[in-house]
């Protein structure tokens, strides 16, 4: 009796916990997805009158989604690639110097800057009348603001990529420095050199593989976050093509009710892509470990 009582209490508490988890953790996600799916097929929504595949066909034919998907993938991929490269280079070249207290603190400072502030700052620097344009004027390189190249709201997403890099690189640098220390990569590198490997071989075959192997899940996670980024492309992007989140919100929030369903089509496809990516990332790999 004395044993079964706490056990049943335990089960009760655990069940309440699971119900809560289901209500807050799972139900909203499922509800959001089902609602978007029904809307995309015309089954719900003020302007819709019944099942139709019309919105899926028109979304496909307009090409806006495919353009946006390719654009977002290229922007996110480029930003991640450059950020990983810079962070790895800094880790391998300066890891000892970065242990200095001032530098160690400075490396953390960019984490205090949210996306919307980073985008605002990039705009202030790179816009036609921005800080860099003023410097170019002071040096006599330009005589009018409009001569300054398009670096924000531009077709090559230079402003967006620059902002993404400035957000992601500090995080990756700290992550790589952590892994470098925890995995004792220095000792492994020394061992490989004592076994006859040269510097180049040690970097490419020991240090980099160890660091990347330990962090690729988080790099993948970051890629997914950038793919769905909103405020940075909203401030620094152009009219067309737009990044996925901006496109979805533009379609869903506009007054033309007939276009609303197309917005939900894109939201459904985006959700499927992202959840598939999450399954691929996390079902094969160990859980992301946190330092306690």
């Amino acid at each position: 009796m004395t044993i079964s009582e706490p056990l049943s209490l335990k089960n009760k508490a655990s069940n309440i916990g699971f119900i809560f988890f289901g209500l807050i953790g799972i139900l909203p996600f499922v509800a959001a997805f089902v609602y978007a799916l029904l809307y995309s097929f015309g089954l719900v929504g003020a302007a819709n009158s019944g099942f139709t595949t019309e919105f899926w066909i028109s979304t496909w034919q307009s090409g806006a989604f495919i353009k946006s998907l390719v654009y977002s993938t290229v922007v996110a991929g480029t930003s991640i690639f450059i950020s990983v490269s810079i962070a790895l280079w800094l880790t391998l070249k300066f890891r000892k110097e970065l242990e200095h207290p001032i530098l160690a603190f400075a490396m953390y400072l960019p984490l205090a800057i949210p996306g919307i502030v980073a985008a605002f700052f990039t705009f202030q620097l790179l816009a036609k009348a921005g800080f860099f344009s003023r410097i170019a004027y002071a040096f006599g390189w330009i005589t009018e603001a409009r001569q300054f190249p398009d670096l924000v709201n531009d077709p090559y997403a230079i402003g967006i990529i620059a902002t993404f890099i400035s957000i992601v690189t500090p995080f990756l640098l700290l992550l790589f420095l952590n892994v470098y220390k925890n995995e004792r990569v220095d000792e492994l590198a020394q061992l490989s050199q004592s076994l006859g490997a040269n510097k180049q071989q040690t970097v490419w075959r020991v240090s980099l593989p160890v660091v990347l192997n330990k962090t690729w899940t988080l790099i993948g996670l970051y890629f997914i976050f950038l793919l769905g980024a909103y405020e940075v492309p909203l401030i620094l992007g152009q009219e067309s093509p737009q990044m996925l989140s901006v496109l979805i919100i533009r379609e869903i929030k506009q007054y033309d009710l007939s276009r609303l369903s197309e917005g939900y089509v894109v939201a459904v496809i985006y959700t499927v892509i992202v959840t598939t990516a999450a399954v691929l990332l996390f079902s094969r790999k160990n859980d992301v470990k946190h330092e306690g």
Partner: peptide, 15 residues
């Protein structure tokens, strides 16, 4: 991970 990984703005729009 699903609700966490989805862009919050899209999640909110669908909700």
């Amino acid at each position: 991970y699903f609700p966490y990984i989805l862009a919050p703005v899209v999640f909110a729009a669908c909700l």
